[in-house]
Design a protein around this nucleic acid. Structure first.
Lengths: 344, 344
DNA sequence: ATGAAAGCGCTAACAA
DNA sequence: TTGTTAGCGCTTTCAT
């Protein structure tokens, strides 16, 4: 196994080479600021002593970390089980790699995102799926850590990378209403952790308002919609909700995330309910078909692109470029095999 | 947008509260080592001044980082597109979360894993898919950074979490040989970046030796096997290889990774080749079916579990517990719908 | 061209 | 109980 020999420091090299620490530092990071002879001698001894500069100390001294943080809205094993989130991460990470940065996945600490932020050592934070109102918002402000949201909400202090949530959810709902569905089950995302008070700027509220608009257009009363508000964004929890949904009498399920939808489909199939003949279903995100289920009709979100844009925006911030606002990214409804007119 | 007000430091609090920095430090991190009155006064002023301890400085001083690093074998966007790797990461991350750690994804810098390691600020490194021989091995030794491999190879200096590669690949190959296949296409993993010299301890070599053993048992000459050694571990590159494979006359494809296999299947289906009637295929890893392809017969690896074990091992190392060796994790052949006897 | 020394913000051994 | 002070390893200003 590895032996923990003590690290060689810059002082060792300085002493051994007969130069100052400054000289050594320059030899490594600013060759032009030191004589050729001195530099050679220094690098020589550094090599001989197997000196590796301590990146930790360097970063600390330079006040940077060469790391972007990705703040997870829920437990890590839930988030990484969601292909949509992973795809966002892939976009984020690609840009990090291009900049020589690491991407740090930051799960909540004891269910607290706030605590996680306090412990995080990163140059910038990217959040996903919730509003930064209140606690975390002022915390990052105190820490002088730039923050960019993905799927966040309107906030005067932070940028958010989003699709047009109202419009997308309007179209999603309209798609099924136009097919004739009138008895609906709507599965929402879990209440955002960071919005203590009811807040109409978060992603859930905005989508709900899109739904309401569509329902209004088709004169469908809210009472004919059954809401499922306690479903985690997981396959398993979708599956779990399947039972109640099946028994709700709905002819169509509208979910705010594909991963839930696939869980629901799995349950339905296991229980002899045919999709879409018996129950139609439409999702949100557009992840790949899951567990052998048929391809979902859904709202496509450019996940990878969202990650990329968020990271690029973050580097703009870090490198002092002014950023007016994050752009709306495009979405579209993609056809799968899970929608048809209601049976009767 | 955020305003970058200057951070309050421990010195500010000390001065303002009329105590020393030590006292402030204790007030936060060792309440029992300071009087109640002093503590109260200090926390009071800290609150008033919105003081947030600088985690960077704290970590630097304590010589830790509260972060585990996950060293990627290839570009980040390739790795995160592989569900097998993501699942490993999920296992790693879960344990990190349990320990209040972050998980840092470390992509190569300019194609160099070595450079990435030098820049990384983490308490421990977990690698994936290659041997740590040579450069990186001695580097982490100099940096005194503990390292644990996943899918690495035999190495006297580092632990590796693996299945029994020889046995698994033997069984994988035997599975198709026993069905009667004699003309085979074998798709390997790309040559591990970190093994400059031919090395027989890496994962690819070990699996090849399993293949040889199985072929020997069935008296099948190596000449009846067509090797594809330049296929990246991606869906797209599998797809790309599909053409040559189709034309190779093989009745069965044996791949070292599912993601390649699904790419190949996609190509075959698009070109009217039926799986398994025309060409059988067997994979490795056991990821979920991809892009609507049928479920692959494959070797199941407990990816999540591998990640967990690697992380747990790492924390053993970090917390000074002695670790003899990483255990072999179990594997199994799982039946899909992609295997049948050869046609003629 | 080179070096002394003062940071960076926090911890902790040691002294009082 | 509390404070002084010397680190942690590197960067960088400012003399020389």
């Amino acid at each position: 196994m590895q032996m923990n020999r003590k690290r060689i420091t810059i002082a060792d090299i300085a002493r051994e080479a007969g130069y100052s620490k400054t000289a050594v530092s320059f030899a490594f990071n600013a060759p032009e600021r030191i004589g050729a002879a001195a530099r050679e001698k220094i690098l020589e001894t550094a090599r001989a002593l197997n000196y590796i500069p301590d990146q930790r100390a360097r970063n600390f001294s330079l006040g940077r970390q060469l790391t972007l943080g990705f703040l997870l809205p829920q437990d890590l094993d839930i988030c990484l089980a969601n292909p949509y989130i992973v795809e966002v991460m892939r976009g984020l990470g690609k840009i990090c790699q291009d900049h020589g940065y690491m991407l740090s996945i930051i799960p909540p600490i004891n269910d607290s995102i706030y605590e996680a932020v306090k412990k995080a050592t990163v140059d910038g934070l990217v959040t996903m799926g919730y509003l930064v109102s209140g606690g975390v918002g002022s915390l990052v402000d105190l820490m002088a850590t730039p923050l960019v949201m993905i799927d966040g909400g309107k906030d005067e202090n932070f940028l958010s990378v989003n699709i047009d949530e109202e419009k997308a959810s309007f179209m999603q709902m309209e798609r099924v209403l136009s097919l004739g569905h009138r008895r609906l089950a709507v599965v929402t995302l879990p209440a955002p952790t960071l919005t203590p008070k009811a807040d109409d700027r978060g992603i859930v509220s905005r989508r709900l308002s899109g739904y309401r608009a569509a329902l209004g257009k088709y004169d469908v009363p809210l009472s004919s919609v059954r809401f499922f508000n306690n479903t985690e964004t997981t396959f398993d929890d979708g599956y779990r909700a399947g039972c109640e949904i099946m028994e709700s009498g709905a002819t169509c399920v509208v979910t705010m995330s594909d991963i839930q939808a696939y869980g629901i489909m799995h349950y339905l199939r296991e229980h002899g309910v045919r999709v879409p003949q018996d129950i139609s279903i439409i999702g949100f995100d557009n992840i790949c078909p899951y567990r052998g289920e048929k391809k979902l009709t859904t709202v496509n979100q450019p996940a990878y692109e969202k990650g990329r844009i968020a990271a690029l925006t973050m580097f703009d911030l870090l490198e002092g470029r002014t950023v007016e606002s994050a752009p709306l990214v495009p979405f579209s409804i993609v056809e799968g095999e899970t929608l048809c007119p209601p049976a009767n």
